[in-house]
Structure formats: structure tokens, C-alpha cells
Design a protein around this nucleic acid. Structure first.
Lengths: 265, 265
DNA sequence: CTAGATTTGTTCGTATGTATC
DNA sequence: TGATACATACGAACAAATCTA
């Protein structure tokens, strides 16, 4: 602990802001101010060195910061340099995932959210689906059927989640769409290591297909109440299955390993 | 010649992964594998240079990456070096915010989420609130009362949001808590530039206080149904007010500026 | 297809600021 | 106060990637 009795405990040690961080901040603002879009280029390292009057390493650290934040990618060669990237959805998802990696999260908690959000999502896209969207949804259903018929259970589970990603694409609420997509990606990962044999797989796959078909039907009829009801039932069913899958996974793990062994990673 | 005629030319340009990125990845894994927690230190630059057999600049870029991701902070002086940071909630929130900055988002969309999530949050903390939590909630209510009485409307709106942050602290669902906290921070920002004079401010402040008091009551009684009902009504009321605030803000903007002028910031 | 030009990626050496003892 | 250990920053070089003639 520090020992300063007289001075008001300065919570902000007022550490000098690193030059590279200042430059990174300034570059961020310039990107926003000059309305730079995907494909545009920032000045190259040499030009930035002259502009800011600093050394190469400093510029590189600043650009590294922007790169990690998903704002630019570096490219070598003539006409190379820092190029502005489209948008950093994945960077945001990656950070959120990194945060959750240190928290303990189970299916019940994921579905507590998913139950609400997917219903909202479904209601939001009623009347907004284009013929292309319907085509994608039905192509996904067909793919699910094939996967189930061939007994590829794990694949079936993964493809089923894509159905909901398509709905996210059609949503006009970017925040809701982001969160639903994020939950979907979580499910894909959580299911990956648990897709071993399970007797309920066939029944679950069939039930999902029926739900998805009913949803498409309700979307076509633009029947908001039907969408709400179907989606809610769909989520509850899925949660129930996932919980059993998780329970089986845990007991399998318990019987296969001595207590105290660490989980697979 | 015949560099690779038989080998399938990788369609992915397969850009060599930068050394600094490889090292950053490896350091990430080491942090996870060795279960390094807040306060622990990574080896200093010199040691890392020896370990990876590379130069200072490369190590510094790798560490910069970890720093931006919120995993470490750099410290000078003896016993300095890269120190592991608690957890990067704010890094995740920052990235998500950066993503949403480029999307268009209005109050209706925020509240479409908040309506569902805050109810979930309230239900989740029923029976989990400690005496300390209750004390904080009531201190917040008192602070709101004071702010309203003194006519500090903007402050009142901000403090009211803190009430919901306290509920997030008490939740056992980290994902739900993160999202609610994020929505709260969005609201704080959205309200900041719109808290000009509005006749409904007093009525809204009073209504919020009543809702918060009723919520604390329901939490004390551990009455889940009452929590659900109160929170839902609270959210709907808040949404209604925010929409009017937003509408007034937009008309003010329209009358004050010629069409085509860009919005602030 | 090779050769050269351009730009990032990486290295080494050195100097300065900063915090601890 | 000075000495020490560390991050921060500078500058000059070379290596690798990539576009163009």
C-alpha cells in the first residue's frame, strides 16, 4: 500500500499518457472527422513519422492499437499502409467473449436471455422479410433436413443456429441483432464439445425443424402473435434439451475423470 | 522453378502471421494456462526478448496488443513490467460502443431490449439481495430525492440509472448483467445532451422514485410477480418519457438549424 | 516471368524518463 | 540524495512482402 497521509489519496496516479496512445487517439478522431470509410488509407508510416515528429516504433505502436481495435489492417508493398476496415463486429464480439471466458456461464443463463431476445427479434422482423430472406430460411431448413437424415447430429445443431442468424440479418435493431448473434455463437461453441451420442437428438432435430417451418409460415402470414408463441415455445424446448445435454455431459465427465481433474480446454 | 504446381494454391492469401501477433497470442494462452490473476506480473521486456529470441520492438508491439485488449497495464520502475489487470469489462463495452457508433440507434430500439432484460434482471436478483445491497438501493433513492428537490434534472436522470446498476451487481448472470449495464451506460449518454428543460421532468422523476420504492418493497417481500409487474411498468413509463424527450430534442434541433447541418459531434 | 521499387516487419544500439530502494 | 531497474522513445539499418514495369 502507498503511504500518503496528507495528500488526498489521488486515485488517478496521473501517469503520463504514452505518446503512442496520444497518436492513436488522434488518428481515431481523424478517421471519424474526415469520414474515412472502408478501403480508404491512412498515411504510411514514413508520412506519420514526419507528421507527428516521432520515431518509427512509436507510430507502429499507435497503429497496432488501431489494428487490435479492428479499425485498420496493415498492408505491405507499394500503395500499402494502414487501410480502414469495414466495421468491427467481430472485434466487439471477441472482447465480450474474452470477458465472459473468465465468468462462469451455463445454458440456463444463456437461455434466460435468449428466450426474451429471440422473441423480440422475431417480432421485429415480421413484415420486413424479403423474398431473398425467405429463400435463405428455406434453404437452411432443407440443409437441416439433410443433416438430420444423414445422422450428422452435431452438424444439424450448428446449422439450426444459422436459421436465427438469418433473422438477425433482417432485423433493423443493430443492438438486438448483435446480441442475438452473439448468443448464437456462444451456443455453437457450447454445443461443440457436447454433441456426442444422445437418444433425444432425433426428436430434438425434428422438433426444431417443425418450429422453424411454423415460424416461416407465421412470417409469411405476418402474424405477430403466432411468431411470438412459436418462438417462445421453440426457445423453451431448446433450453430443455440443452439442459439435458449439459447434464449428460457433466455426468460423463464426472465418470470419466477423477474429481479434481480440470475440464477440457 | 516449379515452386508449387502440385500443391493446391491456398485461395486465402495466407499472409504470414506477424511475429508480434504470434507472441501476443502465446502470451494470452500463457496467462490463461498459468491462471494468472490480477496483480501478477508477466516477465519484463528483457526476459521476453530472451525467451522469444526477438527484438524489443516486437515484444513491445505484442504487449501493446494485450494492453489494448485490457489484459495488462505497463508499469515503469523497479519491479515494473506488464501487470495483469482485473478484468476487461470496460474494454468489451468500449468495443461494442464503437461498433454501435456507426449504426443508427434510437430510444425505441434500446428500450425494446431494456423492457425484456431489466425484468429478467429483477427476477434474477429476487432473494439474492444482501442487506448491503438494500442499503445501496435506498441510498440511491435518497440521492434521487435530493437531486429532484434541488431541481437538478439531468443529475436526477443519471442517478436513477445507477439504481439499475446496483441490481446488476447483485445478479448471478454475468451476461445479463453486462448487457443491462451496457444499456444503462448508453442511456446515460443519450440523455446527456437531451436533458434540457422539459415540463414532464418533475412528473417523470416522481414516477421513477415511486417505481424504485415499490421495487425495493417487492424485493424485500421476495415477491417475484410484483417485481415483474413493477419493473415492466417502470420500463414502459421510462420508454414513453424518453421518446417524448427525444421527439422534443429532434424538433428543437430542426428549428435551430438549417436542414443539412450535421448533428453535434 | 524477372527485376526493381515501395512499404511494412524486425533488429540492434542508445538515450531518456520514471519509480523503487 | 543517489543508485538501480524498468519502460519509453529515438535512429539507423536490414529483411520480407507486394505491386508495377
Amino acid at each position: 500500500m502507498s503511504s500518503d497521509a496528507t495528500m488526498t489519496e489521488a486515485p488517478a496516479p496521473m501517469r503520463r499518457i504514452k505518446l503512442s496512445d496520444q497518436i492513436a487517439e488522434d488518428l481515431c478522431r481523424r478517421i471519424a472527422r474526415e469520414r474515412l470509410g472502408p478501403g480508404d488509407r491512412l498515411p504510411n508510416e514514413a508520412a506519420l513519422m514526419r507528421h507527428y515528429g516521432c520515431a518509427k516504433g512509436t507510430i507502429r505502436e499507435a497503429l497496432k492499437s488501431l489494428e487490435v481495435q479492428g479499425l485498420v489492417t496493415m498492408q505491405s508493398g507499394p500503395n500499402g499502409g494502414p487501410e480502414i476496415r469495414p466495421i468491427s463486429v467481430e472485434a466487439a464480439a471477441r472482447q465480450l467473449r474474452r470477458f465472459l471466458h473468465f465468468q462462469e456461464l451455463d445454458f440456463a443463463q444463456v437461455y434466460a436471455l435468449r428466450r426474451s431476445l429471440e422473441v423480440q427479434l422475431g417480432l421485429g422482423v415480421v413484415g420486413r422479410l424479403t423474398p431473398q430472406d425467405f429463400a435463405r430460411l428455406e434453404a437452411n431448413i432443407a440443409e437441416c433436413e439433410a443433416a438430420n437424415a444423414e445422422g450428422r447430429r452435431g452438424i444439424g445443431r450448428i446449422v439450426e443456429v444459422d436459421f436465427h442468424d438469418i433473422l438477425c440479418d433482417a432485423s433493423d435493431n443493430p443492438l438486438l441483432a448483435f446480441m442475438c448473434r452473439f448468443l448464437n455463437s456462444l451456443l455453437r461453441d457450447l454445443v461443440e464439445f457436447r454433441s456426442e451420442s444422445l437418444t433425444e437428438h432425433e426428436a430434438f432435430g425434428a422438433h426444431n425443424l417443425a418450429s422453424h417451418r411454423a415460424l416461416v409460415c407465421a412470417f409469411r402470414a405476418e402474424d405477430a402473435d403466432a411468431v411470438r408463441g412459436e418462438m417462445h415455445a421453440h426457445m423453451c424446448c431448446a433450453e430443455h434439451f440443452m439442459q439435458r445435454l449439459d447434464a449428460k455431459f457433466r455426468t460423463d465427465l464426472l465418470s470419466a475423470r477423477t474429481p479434481g481433474a480440470r475440464a477440457a480446454e
